[in-house]
């Protein structure tokens, strides 16, 4: 699934400058706990999280994740957006809950990172 398709499927708003529409995303990782991201994720994953803080961006950057989705329409603070821009991470906000966001992407064929 491309980043563009994720944006469309999740009715998401892009809040960073970097927009790699055609980039392929192979896996999804949905959690609020950052060690889980570091433990299970692969690069070319999308991180879906309710933790709308700088920590989520730092973690994504360390784990080579380029796309982060914040759920439930929750807007992060400015430093979080700035950090995402600096790290060239695409930050999306979806109005859906984490459950619904996962459900939609799963239904469209995306799967979680294999262990």
């Amino acid at each position: 699934m491309t980043v563009g398709e994720i944006i469309k499927n999740l009715e998401a708003m892009v809040i960073t400058k970097f927009l790699p529409d055609e980039t392929e995303i192979d896996w999804a990782c949905a959690t609020d706990l950052m060690s889980e991201v570091l433990y299970y994720s692969r690069d070319s994953s999308v991180l879906i999280t309710g933790l709308t803080k700088q920590q989520a961006i730092r973690t994504a950057d360390i784990a080579d994740i380029r796309v982060v989705v914040f759920t439930r329409g929750k807007e992060p603070d400015t430093p979080t957006i700035e950090l995402a821009n600096e790290k060239e991470i695409t930050l999306l906000i979806t109005p859906f809950s984490m459950f619904t966001a996962c459900g939609i992407l799963y239904e469209r064929g995306l799967r979680c990172c294999p262990e």
Partner: peptide, 17 residues
């Protein structure tokens, strides 16, 4: 700490892994 997204008990296992 858990509310900050950490403290899930995966830190040391992750370092080892």
């Amino acid at each position: 700490v858990r509310e900050m997204g950490w403290g899930s008990g995966m830190g040391l296992p992750n370092m080892k892994k």
